[in-house]
Simulated assay, not measured.
Amino acid sequence: MSQDRNMCFSPNPSYKDNQSYPIQEPTGYIPHPLQPGGNNGQHKTSCEVPSVLPACPKLTKDDEQGGDQWGNFTGLERKKIRCAFIRKVYLILLIQLSITFGLIAICHFIPSIHEYVRSSHGKWLYFASYFVFFVTYFTLVWSKRAARMFPFNLILLAIVTLSMGYMMGMISAYYKIESVLIAVGITGFVCLGITLFSFQTKYDFTLCFGVLFVITLVVLALIVICIFTFSRIMFTIYAGLGAIVFSIFLAVDTQLIMGGKRHEISAEDYVFASLMLYMDIAQIFMLILSLFGIRK
């Protein structure tokens, strides 16, 4: 899944760009014969240097990130765009999480739906949701045009949220409600702490893609081992390592959205950014539930 994250973000060209504008120092001039000071139609032979040179404007931090004061794109404008982008992403994420945990609550507290999702018909609907989820998810990840085409991108994101919400609701229906609530609390605490840390730290997590790719391969290998061995110990190792990996992914994705690091997401990819955060939080919740949850 780490390769999917390279689709909609690019290196930040303004990262550590501390160059200033060169000062153009006039070395001299020869006035036109018809201009004042032209010495009655004869050219001056000596160079005249102005006593006061034009000062080179100093670049601010915002100018270094977004442009200069003569261009059409200023640092202040870039900062406003990034702040509006962050607000839009987290608003969409809040709606997604509300729908998802609402479906989880419905699967637990409504007896008829609780029995349905645990029946054979509910399992078939689970596999159908799994198929729909993968089709819409990879459409948003691999097609930049689909991820930016309004309102088609929001429709696909809604389908991803509903399908993922049903799958999480069905899986959580096999656990006690106390375990689900504990997993929700731990997930909220971990995600909030990682988000706040990613916003204020000077460490650039967007440079860790190579390490994350290797760790992701290890997690995938553990999944294969768990499928064929049915070992509880291996599954516990996979769940713990997977929760750590997706926590790091959450820190990376947060800094990609925040901007100002080596890599950042374009302001047009707000749907893709919301999808990344949503998948990180959903995976952290499911792995924590499998680690500490008690089955019925």
Rank of each mutant, 00 (worst) to 15 (best):
R232D: 14
L103V: 10
S98K: 00
Y130P: 02
I159F: 08
P151E: 04
S120Y: 13
C208S: 11
Q3S: 15
A55H: 07
F150T: 14
S266N: 15
G28P: 04
L212R: 10
V211S: 13
M276E: 10
R148K: 02
A105T: 15
K176S: 08
Y175L: 08
I30R: 11
I113P: 06
E77Q: 15
A251P: 03
I186L: 15
G169Q: 12
E64F: 15
S172E: 09
V49Y: 12
D204T: 06
V211C: 06
E264R: 00
L212V: 02
I288G: 03
M7T: 10
F235L: 10
K202C: 02
Y130E: 05
K88S: 13
L291H: 02
P36D: 10
L103A: 05
A221M: 05
M167W: 06
C208M: 15
G28Y: 04
I284E: 03
L76G: 02
Q255W: 03
C56V: 14
K123L: 09
L241K: 00
G71Y: 04
L157S: 05
T254M: 08
K144P: 03
D204A: 04
G259K: 05
M7I: 01
L275C: 01
R87C: 00
F127V: 07
L212H: 11
L97K: 01
T27S: 12
Y130W: 09
L291R: 03
L291G: 03
I177F: 11
D280T: 07
K261T: 06
I244R: 09
I237Y: 02
S179A: 07
P111N: 00
V224C: 07
W142F: 08
V245R: 00
R232N: 09
I284W: 08
F230E: 14
H108V: 05
Q42W: 06
C8L: 11
I215F: 13
R262N: 08
A282L: 11
R148G: 04
I233T: 14
S10I: 01
P151G: 04
N39H: 04
T161S: 10
S10F: 13
L289S: 04
L156H: 07
T45G: 13
L241W: 12
Y278H: 10
K144M: 08
S274T: 07
R295Y: 06
S119D: 09
F205D: 01
R5E: 00
S179H: 05
L140D: 11
L154Q: 09
E25L: 12
A267P: 13
M234D: 07
G122P: 01
F199P: 02
S163C: 13
G260A: 05
I194K: 00
L34M: 11
G188H: 10
T206C: 07
P36C: 00
M276A: 12
R295F: 11
I95P: 01
P57H: 13
I294T: 12
N18C: 07
P36A: 09
D253N: 14
G293S: 03
V252R: 00
V180M: 04
P26F: 00
K123T: 02
M7K: 13
N40T: 07
G188I: 02
D17F: 04
F199G: 00
L76A: 12
L291N: 04
T100Y: 06
Y203D: 05
I177Q: 02
P57E: 13
V160P: 01
N39R: 08
L53V: 09
L125A: 10
V190E: 09
A267Y: 08
L241P: 03
F134M: 11
